[in-house]
Design a protein around this nucleic acid. Structure first.
Lengths: 256, 256
DNA sequence: TATTAAAGTGAACACCGTTAGCAAATTAAT
DNA sequence: ATTAATTTGCTAACGGTGTTCACTTTAATA
């Protein structure tokens, strides 16, 4: 006769949620210690104080657990990035985008194993198995991890769009992207019609989406290289990031 | 009495080399089919027609096998990249650098699982475990995989250096890199003293090594994103690469 | 040909993910 | 309050993994 008249989660549901959290915490701890492939279901069970078979009451398989863990990690990344952005006022679009980059980098480098799991998920990347056509599908049809990854990049994309709109309306004075290289018609169409729709949520001019996409590749390259230890610069990494950000801003026609 | 007077490899050595090649071939086939973590020592043994224990006469462990496989894959990548570069004459530095990028991309995308293994090697990246200070050590002290990776990027770096030297001597007319962003003294020193030494083999001016490093990050980002299915552009990928290459060339002060 | 080194075997060990069947505990319904 | 239903956990087992050890077979050497 557990009173559940208030509509809140029942005692059992609370217990279950707590166990699930414990399982995930143990998985993450093992991820930290032994890397993505060192996560053992049986070790988790030992850790939680339960039999390995019991874990199947909570997750369909180890892979399913890892996928959920991935999603949680993306949620954490997204939350921290959002918090970093919100430290600047809504009008400070440039500061917010910079904050996005720094937060992304800090999280990825501060949680290398987690980041490793996220981008190499799940032992045979879903994006690979769908032949790299993630963006052709509606976000609802994407696998959950790819959806979260998209959500993360959209945070920055929407900020850039807001900045663009204010330059368009004259509210902000900025030259905007200049000197685009030659771009084929097919690529133009894809950038404007698909990329801008998915990453920004609304169509924006070619020059903006192209410059943003280029910058996104650079940031991704920086973060992956640093997290995987392939960055050419090893000592003055912060300064290197700063110069890269400056260079990207210059591509957007922004000085300082 | 196998005559080994010619000094060539003995019959036994030939047999051994052949078996090793067979083992690696089987490992790679499994890599292709089931991904990096799907490589099973016992399956390899079954494939080669031998007991699992027998493989330990050839490799200290599965990990050691994977490391050697990684090195072989890098050798293959390096060979193909070199061949692609050598399709252009030695003086055509720009063409050769472009060929390097395309060959890198083609190989990585055409051998995604292999590339995945190479950059996530070895289940707890050596570069990570050495705290990301790969470049502080002499190449001889690097783990073999990181050394190969360095060798690969040096191919492009040396080409760029040759190009720089000819612009310096006036043999080639080019404006050279322009409009560097603000760079701190510490980063300047690291770029010129360490990065240029390791990637190029000789000190080159700040503007060149900085621009090269920036381009290297962009190329790496492109290739990793495409191989992992995270590239924003999905249909006109070739064209996207071309525009990125054009943008990078512009950074070097080169038009066309 | 006798000796020696290499290659291969089979059994065992300690793990792993996963499934099936069964017992205990908790919730819901009568 | 008793019964029925559901959830949770257990044990045991299956087939798989990397690795080691003692032993035999094979091949090259002296």
């Amino acid at each position: 006769m557990t009173s559940n008249t208030a509509g809140g989660p029942s005692r059992r549901e609370r217990m279950r949620a707590e166990t699930i959290a414990e399982i995930k915490a143990s998985a993450r701890s093992q991820l930290l210690q032994h890397g993505p492939s060192g996560i053992s279901l049986r070790a988790i069970a030992r850790d939680v104080g339960v039999t390995a078979a019991a874990l199947y009451r909570y997750f369909d398989s180890l892979d399913a657990l890892l996928i959920e863990l991935c999603c949680d990690l993306y949620d954490e990344l997204i939350a921290e990035t959002r918090a970093a952005m919100d430290a600047s006022p809504p009008e400070a679009h440039l500061e917010r985008m910079k904050a996005w980059v720094w937060a992304f980098r800090d999280w990825a480098v501060g949680n290398r194993r987690e980041f490793e799991l996220m981008i190499s998920y799940p032992e045979g990347n879903a994006a690979i198995s769908m032949d790299g056509r993630a963006l052709e599908h509606a976000p609802e049809n994407l696998d959950p991890v790819t959806r979260k990854s998209l959500e993360h990049s959209q945070m920055c994309g929407r900020e850039m769009a807001a900045f663009y709109r204010k330059t368009e309306s004259g509210e902000i004075q900025a030259a905007g992207p200049l000197e685009l290289p030659e771009i084929s018609d097919g690529l133009k169409a894809e950038l404007v019609d698909k990329c801008s729709m998915f990453i920004v949520g609304e169509p924006i001019p070619l020059s903006w989406i192209f410059t943003f996409t280029s910058a996104w590749v650079r940031v991704f390259g920086l973060v992956v290289m640093e997290a995987f230890g392939n960055l050419p610069v090893q000592e003055n990494v912060d300064e290197f990031y700063k110069t890269q950000i400056l260079a990207m801003m210059r591509d957007f026609g922004i000085e300082g």
